[in-house]
Amino acid sequence: MKFSEFKAGMVVTHPPVVVSQEEMLSFAKAYDPQWFHTDVKRAEQGRWEGLIASGWLTCSLAMRMAVDAALHDSESFGSPGLEKLRWLLPVRPDDAIHLEATVDSVRISSSRDDLGIMRWTWRVFNQRKEQVLEVEATSLFELDNGK
């Protein structure tokens, strides 16, 4: 989507993505090697009563869904950061998670007319319609504005 297509209040969605145990283990071994993400047997005895995905994998999948659903053909060039990141429930092997991203605001920078700024809230849900992730993000867009 192009920057001009984003409107406050609109919801951008992405269909479900299934998270496999193999993907969870591979990601965790490389980036978040805590036992409840990497040790299937020990995780069964732990607080979560089974293996759970790294929250960072969930964030990465949300990012991929946001790119596929909205940013892939846009003028987006980065982000100054996040306002809020919450892992609400664990993602488990074979969960099917989907994205619902609400555009909170869209504006042109007051100091640079070639910079678009969008704030949006990403909500990720599992197949039981339980929310597993919430992220408030800002995306920056390079605008031509006739230059």
Score class of each variant (00 low, 15 high):
68 D>M: 11
64 R>S: 06
71 L>M: 01
83 E>R: 07
105 S>I: 02
83 E>Q: 04
64 R>F: 06
112 R>D: 15
114 D>Q: 13
63 M>K: 12
117 I>Y: 06
66 A>H: 09
73 D>M: 09
101 A>E: 03
67 V>K: 14
55 G>K: 05
103 V>F: 00
99 L>Y: 14
109 S>P: 04
47 R>E: 06
65 M>S: 07
35 W>F: 07
90 P>I: 02
85 L>M: 02
32 D>T: 13
49 E>T: 08
80 P>K: 04
119 R>S: 13
54 S>H: 10
97 I>F: 13
83 E>A: 05
32 D>Y: 14
24 M>T: 00
96 A>L: 12
84 K>P: 07
45 Q>P: 03
115 L>G: 04
25 L>H: 12
21 Q>I: 09
40 V>E: 03
93 P>D: 06
69 A>T: 15
57 L>V: 05
111 S>T: 12
38 T>P: 04
39 D>S: 08
35 W>I: 00
65 M>D: 09
46 G>T: 02
103 V>K: 02
107 R>E: 02
118 M>D: 07
114 D>V: 03
94 D>Q: 09
105 S>V: 11
102 T>R: 13
81 G>L: 00
85 L>S: 01
25 L>R: 14
96 A>Q: 13
109 S>C: 05
37 H>F: 08
97 I>E: 15
93 P>R: 10
73 D>Y: 14
66 A>T: 01
39 D>P: 07
34 Q>G: 12
69 A>E: 05
106 V>L: 00
37 H>C: 01
69 A>P: 04
46 G>F: 09
105 S>P: 01
97 I>A: 11
38 T>F: 02
57 L>S: 02
43 A>P: 08
59 C>G: 02
89 L>Y: 11
117 I>H: 04
83 E>D: 08
43 A>W: 07
100 E>P: 09
59 C>Q: 00
106 V>I: 08
61 L>F: 06
61 L>R: 15
62 A>W: 15
24 M>V: 00
37 H>G: 01
72 H>M: 12
82 L>T: 09
26 S>K: 14
83 E>M: 05
102 T>V: 01
46 G>Y: 10
25 L>P: 15
29 K>R: 15
110 S>Q: 14
51 L>Y: 01
48 W>N: 12
87 W>M: 01
112 R>K: 07
117 I>V: 13
36 F>A: 02
89 L>I: 00
71 L>K: 01
108 I>D: 00
72 H>I: 11
